[in-house]
């Protein structure tokens, strides 16, 4: 767990790798190919790359047309323009038709940093989860990004794939098995379970280490596939540890926390606390400072775990 790589960088590299074996893969972007890293694919396979200009809605509409014609399409822009600006096009032209489009959205969450609230997206997972048939994936690091992207390209049907701007620690090794739709048990524990997604998995891992020294046995699960969620691993955690803390770089409304709570309430009720953006907009600043200010750090997870264990 030494190197720091942005998941968008891993995404760009993975597109090129997949593109070498899959001539059916088409990549699109909306004038952000340098930022989303689709430029790497564009350089390698210019005939299969389409820059659609600053017109995200048409990119997703055209992506549907390409996919319905037999292509598998990865169409990238920032999460705010993908999930939010283009929501209804994604809902009708991609979701309702079941088109084989992978909405690969980068620059999600608070770690967008200096660009500020207009670009920091905390609503995308919530929006995408509501579309029937939409798979929603939020990889935690570079390794998971590559492994999961390969699987979603092979999978038939629409998918929202959320990647980030900031360099984050490479958490997994090549040998780690990461399977679409399956929660990843990172660490066993019996007092409480932390369920994290995206870059919060690393924060949760650090939190778990500190909590162990305090005598709290923490189970840690990475839910990279938020929809369909691995209910089995969540129910088991609820039953065996009796308390859950979720952690996501997303609003606590409609995201991982809600997805976990739905499973828990229906199957094995237990206290659930949610670390994430607390129903507020962000602001400009350095990613690490913003994570602190908006309470999405390992410290905040530790605090939530201590509280939930104390109150039980």
């Amino acid at each position: 767990m030494a190197d720091k790589i942005a998941t968008r960088q891993a995404y760009g590299e993975a597109l090129v790798e997949i593109g070498k074996n899959n001539s059916n893969l088409v990549v699109m972007d909306a004038d952000l190919s340098g930022s989303t890293k689709t430029s790497m694919f564009a350089k390698e396979f210019p005939e299969r790359f389409f820059n659609m200009g600053i017109a995200e809605q048409n990119m997703y509409g055209a992506a549907a047309g390409l996919a319905i014609s037999g292509k598998v399409v990865c169409a990238s822009t920032f999460a705010i323009f993908a999930a939010c600006k283009s929501f209804e096009i994604i809902r009708n032209s991609i979701g309702y038709t079941g088109a084989n489009v992978k909405i690969c959205a980068s620059h999600a969450g608070i770690t967008v940093g200096e660009d500020g609230a207009s670009h920091q997206t905390f609503e995308d997972i919530a929006l995408m989860r509501t579309i029937p048939g939409m798979t929603v994936v939020n990889p935690s690091d570079a390794t998971a990004t590559k492994k999961l992207l390969k699987q979603i390209v092979e999978m038939e049907g629409p998918c929202y794939f959320r990647i980030g701007r900031a360099a984050v620690p490479v958490f997994y090794s090549e040998d780690d098995e990461i399977t679409l739709g399956k929660g990843k048990l990172i660490k066993e524990g019996s007092d409480v379970t932390i369920i994290a997604t995206g870059i919060m998995v690393n924060e949760a891992y650090e939190a778990a280490g500190v909590l162990e020294t305090e005598g709290i046995s923490v189970r840690l699960i990475d839910i990279h596939t938020i929809k369909p969620i691995d209910s089995g691993i969540v129910i088991k955690a609820a039953r065996e540890t009796g308390a859950i803390v979720t952690a996501e770089e997303h609003s606590v409304i409609g995201g991982l926390g809600d997805a976990v709570a739905q499973v828990v309430v229906k199957n094995a009720p237990c206290p659930v606390a949610m670390v994430g953006q607390q129903d507020t907009f962000g602001e400009s600043g350095k990613p690490d400072d913003l994570k602190k200010k908006y309470h999405m750090t390992s410290e905040d997870i530790i605090e939530a775990v201590r509280n939930i264990v104390r109150e039980r």
Binding site: V26, E47, R48, F50, Q57, N58, Y60, G61, A62, A63, A64, G65, L66, A67, I68, S69, G70, K71, I89, N92, S93
Partner: peptide
């Protein structure tokens, strides 16, 4: 608007193929 947008994508696919 969406049918027209998708039609453009289909025309792009036909060009590719």
């Amino acid at each position: 608007g969406q049918g027209f947008s998708a039609a453009g994508g289909m025309a792009m696919a036909n060009k590719l193929d």
